[in-house]
Measured scan of single mutants.
Amino acid sequence: GSLMYASIFGNVSAIIQRLYSGTARYHTQMLRVREFIRFHQIPNPLRQRLEEYFQHAWSYTNGIDMNAVLKGFPECLQADICLHLNRSLLQHCKPFRGATKGCLRALAMKFKTTHAPPGDTLVHAGDLLTALYFISRGSIEILRGDVVVAILGKNDIFGEPLNLYARPGKSNGDVRALTYCDLHKIHRDDLLEVLDMYPEFSDHFWSSLEITFNLRDTNMIPGSPGSTELEGGFSRQRKRKLSFRRRTDKDTEQPGEVSALGPGRAGAGPSSRGRPGGPWGESPSSGPSSPESSEDEGPGRSSSPLRLVPFSSPRPPGEPPGGEPLMEDCEKSSDTCNPLSGAFSGVSNIFSFWGDSRGRQYQELPRCPAPTPSLLNIPLSSPGRRPRGDVESRLDALQRQLNRLETRLSADMATVLQLLQRQMTLVPPAYSAVTTPGPGPTSTSPLLPVSPLPTLTLDSLSQVSQFMACEELPPGAPELPQEGPTRRLSLPGQLGALTSQPLHRHGSDPGS
């Protein structure tokens, strides 16, 4: 009898404990919600809404976190579960008819179910419309201010047509639940991603989709105040780019002037030289400038040598048109050559190039014969006009050509200096018209024969001689050997007369 009593008592207590286990969990969670309300000092109306929603959600799901349970299964099984949970929507909604099984599984994985109690606001006026909503159960109302403009029910759709707008718009009203509602919502990016994977279904979906109420604000059109608020930074940046392009296009129409201050000032006329910023005076940081632009901040801005204009002085008759350009485009679109090309026009420029290279940067340069637009006047290309890779490749080509020119210049200078040193070592320090008596009659020769300089066969020296023939050397430049009979510069000019005159010897006659 005691054994029977113990078994009955144990079973009854276990049954009672299981009955009250759900209630215990409910009270535990309710205590957490109330502690949250007390800690954050939530006001009474919002506090009442929180408690009511918790009670309804507990009775609806029995305190089970559906998302946590669903995430515990593998992905393939999750797709089947989501397809079952959203079967009513996918079967009865017209846009989803005719979709393949794979497309429906992908869509079912992207849908999220939302449960809303009465009085809950789903979308506020001015919120971004980031999702498309399908009503599965219940009814909602749409308000503009305090005026109800629409009441939607089961199988209705609200949001915005995503295929017509590249960016999400703003809501033009509040969406509030009238009863307990079940909503299926899919985010904008998720829907577009699935439709991109199934393009054959995309056309059918957009053609058959009928949005019951379009929440997009109709005033959000390009150029409206609301649109400016939504895309303020983007609009200002776009206007700045367009104004920069218009100014650079105007600059290219004036090829007669070359400016070292950047493309923003290349198009300024002579009357605007004294102004601080020219056409860019209202925004000094709008356009890029070269490193020399920092010198323009000092006094005497109108007389600054940074602004270059072609000189009108005539060229000498024998002067060549100019050196070879550094870039391939210089032959086609440049009416002034790079300062480095002028360094190779003569030997005198070679000796004085490194010492006063900055001073020569603004000297007169030889002109190319074609009066085409200036290379320095070409505006900086924006990322939309020329690819970045093209600019980098041009810079690399320019750097390689500069290296080759520097190597060639160093070799030419070394060769010229070597020839000058050899000339100085071969010439005796001094010569006299009267020579010392020699031991015999073989001493009648006034000077030792001097062998002429070897013929220069280097390509670089031939180019130097060509430049010497075309360029007029300055007075202080050293002379180079030329073709024809060679003669030492330090010898007297009348050596031929010395050989014809008898030598005057000093000596005593033994017979006297």
Rank of each mutant, 00 (worst) to 15 (best):
A343I: 07
M220Q: 11
G173Q: 04
E406I: 06
Q463H: 04
R505D: 08
D329Q: 03
E210D: 09
A477V: 11
P437G: 10
P321H: 15
A177Y: 01
L132P: 02
S432W: 01
H506S: 13
Q418F: 13
L473G: 08
T212R: 03
G476H: 13
T499E: 15
Y165P: 04
R404N: 01
P454I: 04
L192A: 08
D329I: 11
S445N: 09
Y431Q: 14
L215I: 03
A131S: 12
D335K: 13
L491P: 03
S352T: 14
P339S: 11
S451M: 13
H204L: 07
T436E: 12
P279L: 12
V464I: 10
Y133F: 07
S235W: 07
Q501A: 12
S285E: 15
P454R: 11
S374R: 09
T457R: 11
R240C: 08
E471H: 13
N219I: 12
G233S: 09
S333L: 08
I142E: 01
P305E: 15
P263D: 13
R505I: 10
R246A: 08
L162V: 10
M468T: 12
H504L: 11
A260I: 13
S508G: 08
S293T: 04
A260T: 14
L143A: 07
H187N: 12
L191E: 01
T228D: 12
T407D: 09
A411Y: 05
E331I: 09
L480M: 05
L261H: 10
D356C: 04
L215K: 01
L473H: 11
Y180F: 07
E328H: 15
K241H: 08
S290T: 15
G359I: 13
D203L: 12
Q418P: 03
V347W: 13
Q423K: 08
P446H: 08
I151N: 06
S243V: 12
Q363A: 14
G511C: 06
E160W: 02
R240E: 12
V147A: 10
L495W: 10
L195P: 03
K250G: 09
E479H: 15
T415W: 05
E200L: 03
P320T: 11
H506R: 05
Q399H: 01
S465G: 11
L456R: 09
R307S: 10
E295N: 09
V147L: 10
M197D: 14
K332H: 10
D296K: 11
E231P: 09
Q466H: 03
L195I: 07
P284C: 06
L178M: 12
Q363L: 05
P510G: 09
P317N: 10
K170D: 01
S302V: 11
I142M: 02
S462T: 13
Y362W: 05
S374F: 07
D251Y: 12
G173E: 03
E297M: 04
G287H: 04
V391Y: 05
I211H: 01
I221D: 12
E472G: 12
P428G: 08
E231L: 08
I186R: 02
Y431P: 04
L308T: 15
E257G: 10
L453I: 10
S382M: 05
S333T: 04
S334K: 15
G346K: 04
A397T: 06
I186D: 03
V464N: 15
R360Q: 09
L473N: 03
L409I: 08
F344A: 12
P320W: 06
C368Q: 13
A430M: 10
S243L: 09
R385F: 07
R386T: 05
C368M: 06
P379N: 05
P288L: 05
R176N: 03
R137F: 07
D459M: 12
V147S: 12
L340K: 05
G298Q: 04
Q482E: 15
T435E: 10
R246P: 13
T130K: 09
V427A: 07
G233P: 11
S289P: 15
A266H: 09
Q361E: 11
F201N: 06
P454T: 11
Y198M: 03
T425H: 06
R315S: 09
L405G: 02
P255S: 11
H506N: 09
D156Q: 05
R408G: 08
G256M: 09
M413Q: 05
F134H: 01
G226C: 07
S286Q: 15
L365E: 09
T407C: 13
V464K: 07
V391P: 06
S293Q: 15
D249W: 05
F158Y: 01
P437I: 11
S451Q: 12
F351G: 10
S393F: 07
D356V: 10
E471V: 12
F353G: 10
L495S: 07
E231V: 11
R265W: 10
Q363H: 08
S243I: 11
L376N: 09
S235E: 10
A150C: 08
I135F: 01
V347A: 10
P320A: 13
N338A: 13
A469V: 13
R144F: 03
F205H: 01
R176A: 03
F158S: 02
P314A: 10
T435Q: 10
G173S: 12
L152A: 03
A131H: 13
K170F: 10
R216C: 05
A131V: 05
R167F: 10
V148H: 08
E231C: 13
L495M: 07
P475A: 10
D251V: 08
G355Y: 13
S136P: 02
K154P: 10
L162D: 03
M424S: 12
S290N: 12
G281T: 08
L215D: 01
D412R: 09
F201S: 10
T228R: 09
I221W: 13
P339H: 11
V416M: 15
A131C: 14
S508Y: 04
R176T: 06
P168V: 12
R394S: 12
D296Q: 04
G153E: 07
C337V: 14
L376A: 03
E231T: 12
R400E: 05
T228Q: 08
P474I: 06
R301I: 04
M468H: 12
P199S: 04
L191V: 03
D412W: 03
P225G: 09
D249P: 13
T336C: 04
Q401W: 05
E392V: 13
Q363D: 04
Q494T: 11
F244P: 12
F201M: 09
A343W: 04
T442I: 13
D196K: 13
E253R: 10
P449T: 09
K170L: 10
L453Q: 07
S451E: 14
R360H: 15
S393G: 13
I151V: 12
F467A: 07
N214F: 02
R394L: 06
L453W: 08
N338L: 10
A266E: 11
P288D: 01
L326T: 12
T336L: 07
D156F: 01
K332A: 12
A411W: 12
P446T: 11
E328S: 09
T455Y: 05
L183H: 01
E200C: 04
E210G: 05
R408P: 02
A266Y: 09
L420W: 01
H187L: 12
D335C: 06
S432L: 08
V434I: 12
G223L: 09
R144E: 11
N219D: 14
L498P: 11
G507T: 09
S381R: 15
L326Y: 05
S303R: 12
S285A: 15
P255W: 09
N377L: 03
R137C: 10
P199C: 02
I142F: 01
P502K: 12
D509L: 12
I135P: 03
G159F: 01
T415Q: 06
E253V: 09
L453D: 13
Y165F: 15
L128W: 06
S139H: 12
E479M: 13
S352P: 10
S374Q: 14
N349T: 14
S235T: 11
V416N: 04
Q361K: 05
L380N: 15
P446M: 07
L375Q: 11
S445V: 12
P478H: 10
D356L: 11
L426S: 07
L420R: 03
V175L: 02
V391L: 04
G355I: 08
L340G: 07
H504S: 05
D182R: 10
Q482M: 04
L143N: 07
T179D: 04
R404Q: 05
T435Y: 12
T130Q: 10
N172T: 08
P475D: 15
S500H: 13
R216D: 03
Y133G: 02
E324P: 04
P225Q: 14
D127M: 01
N219F: 08
P255Q: 10
